[in-house]
Design a binder for these strands. Structure first.
Lengths: 199, 199
DNA sequence: ATATATAGTGATAGTTTGTTCCATTTAAAT
DNA sequence: ATTTAAATGGAACAAACTATCACTATATAT
């Protein structure tokens, strides 16, 4: 490698990231304007000034353009920083919330719009839920490691399942109540889980 | 209406039910033999001796042929029969398990095969999880009714989310451990939830 | 028993998503 | 500057759906 670009900030990488974000932006706009199903990939590609084939190089399906994000690595990183004296659930709670607290007001607004769209379109909802199973498996491994259990221990699995389930219910809640603050609701819901689901 | 057929046991209804079961059977077989994605709707239709258009009259998507079931009404019926002195979670637990306990050994075997296929094919998994959100909403209403809360109460939502999440984790567990008994695992997992997720 | 209405079926053609292959352009490394 | 590797666009394609229409089988009424 010569003087300037090596691995990360190379021109190619930057251009790719920019193109991807651009495509996602146009997709979100079109989905809102004319509906998810009514929007064709061709239209998205045209709006983003790329070819349909290039669209599919960035996103393997039409759904992916709304689903793709990278919270999992952040979640792991944050979880591993949690002090060992916290309960497991406290650690998970802090980890999940710290990712959100770093977002700007603008990003939060986009996230809310995205969440509403996702929860109202069956295809997107299904893809997102499917994605959450990966998060669940990650959580499982993280918890197993922290507590010294095996990752195929039913107790660990159950724990991770409950946390992800609560997360899903909060996503629904916030989609129905647009004024609700996602982070706050998630915090309250996980607190209830810790209290043993009082009713 | 004349002498014989009225609403339920009419020839039409029976024929439809028979056709539907037949299509599902052939679909499951083909999916196992040559894989989900490699199997076309045309092949399923041919095997079941119907036309592709008829396939889509019975199942609105290819996924549906594996997903369609009717546990929700059974779940409701069973839940409403649970005595009021039980805790809410106990009532849910009994309701979920009673549906399974009525199955024959053969049906359980088919259910296990179906579960393994579903959990291993992303499309089917996504569709199933999406379906579970309906169950979650049903659970929410059932629990709200039983406990006298509103159905948009966060505590109720959280409860339902946790139960469904645990259900999902058990589905994964059983897909990975084919020898595991689904009913038993679900029972144990819900017990752990009731104990406050000990680790 | 027969006629009429209704519901299920199959055939066809069309749209859209998503894949594959190849030629062309563009960035990176020496 | 030249070579090497990656990204792109275009075109042709398979399969999942959709819509429509004519045809058949079933149910209902007289």
């Amino acid at each position: 490698m010569s003087t300037n670009n090596k691995r990360n900030g190379g021109l190619r990488e930057r251009k790719k990231a920019k193109t991807m974000a651009n495509v996602q932006m146009h997709a979100l706009r079109l989905f809102r304007e004319i509906g998810y199903n009514a929007t064709t990939v061709e239209q998205i590609a045209e709006a983003a000034e790329i070819s349909p084939s290039t669209f599919f190089r960035y996103f393997s399906t039409k759904e992916d353009v709304m689903i793709t994000d990278n919270y999992d690595p952040l979640l792991i990183a944050s979880f591993e920083k949690q002090p060992p004296e916290l309960s497991t659930l406290q650690a998970v709670r802090n980890a999940m919330l710290s990712g959100i607290s770093e977002l700007s007001a603008d990003e939060i607004k986009t996230m809310r719009e995205r969440n509403q769209l996702i929860m109202s379109v069956p295809e997107l909802r299904a893809a997102t839920l499917n994605n959450l199973t990966q998060t669940m498996q990650l959580l499982t491994e993280m918890i197993a490691k922290r507590t010294g259990h095996k990752s195929d221990d039913l107790a660990v699995r159950t724990f991770a399942g409950a946390v992800v389930g609560v997360n899903i219910s909060v996503m629904f809640y916030c989609a129905e109540n647009p004024e609700a603050d996602f982070a706050k609701m998630l915090d309250e819901a996980l607190a209830k889980l810790e209290e043993g689901l009082p009713l």
